[in-house]
């Protein structure tokens, strides 16, 4: 017997499948099929063919017998077991919580966000200086320093010769 999904039409075959899977208690039957299954069950036992009645009676007897055997195992959890569980998990170790563990990926934004902000500020400052300060510098004698002249001044400040002045 191959169980079907719950979308099919309710018939005696489907009803026996429900009994075989969920047992005899309608409370355990699929909610969406329960009403239809119960109605068919009552109708089939009253007005079904002998073959249908026999099939349902056998399926019901098997399901009830197994349910009855399992009923003996429905025992409550001992109070002391529950007490032990409550005590055991009363103080969960904080160090194993996800948000308290070292998590490099979680830390990446904390590391890179400030660095990115500083970088953006530096770039903005560079652009500001670049656009507002005139790179040409007047020497007072009417001539302007060139970049190479500025470089020579820099070498001279360190007591070196750039090599251009020897020419």
């Amino acid at each position: 017997m191959t169980p079907k999904t719950m979308t099919g039409v309710m018939n005696v075959t489907r009803l026996t499948e429900i009994l075989a899977a969920y047992g005899a208690a309608p409370a355990r039957w699929p909610e969406g099929e329960r009403a239809a299954a119960q109605a068919l069950f009552a109708r089939s036992l009253a007005m079904g063919t002998p073959a249908e009645r026999a099939m349902l009676a056998e399926a019901l007897a098997e399901a009830e017998a197994l349910d009855g055997a399992l009923t003996g195992l429905v025992a409550p959890v001992p109070d002391d077991a529950m007490a032990r569980l409550t005590a055991a998990v009363a103080f969960p170790p904080a160090q194993i919580r996800q948000d308290s563990r070292f998590d490099l990926f979680a830390m990446l934004p904390m590391i890179f966000k400030p660095a990115a902000a500083v970088g953006a500020m530096m770039a903005a400052l560079g652009l500001f200086v670049g656009f507002t300060v005139d790179p040409a510098y007047s020497s007072g004698d009417g001539s302007d320093y060139t970049v190479s002249q500025n470089a020579d001044a820099g070498f001279a400040a360190f007591g070196q010769d750039s090599g251009d002045s020897a020419q």
Binding site: P3, M6, A20, A21, Y22, A63, L66, A69
Partner: peptide, 20 residues
């Protein structure tokens, strides 16, 4: 899936009955 569960239940109850 629900249908897979149902199949599992049918087999479980059949196997339990045989075991008993």
């Amino acid at each position: 899936s629900v249908s897979a569960l149902e199949s599992l239940l049918v087999r479980a109850r059949r196997a339990l009955r045989q075991e008993l």
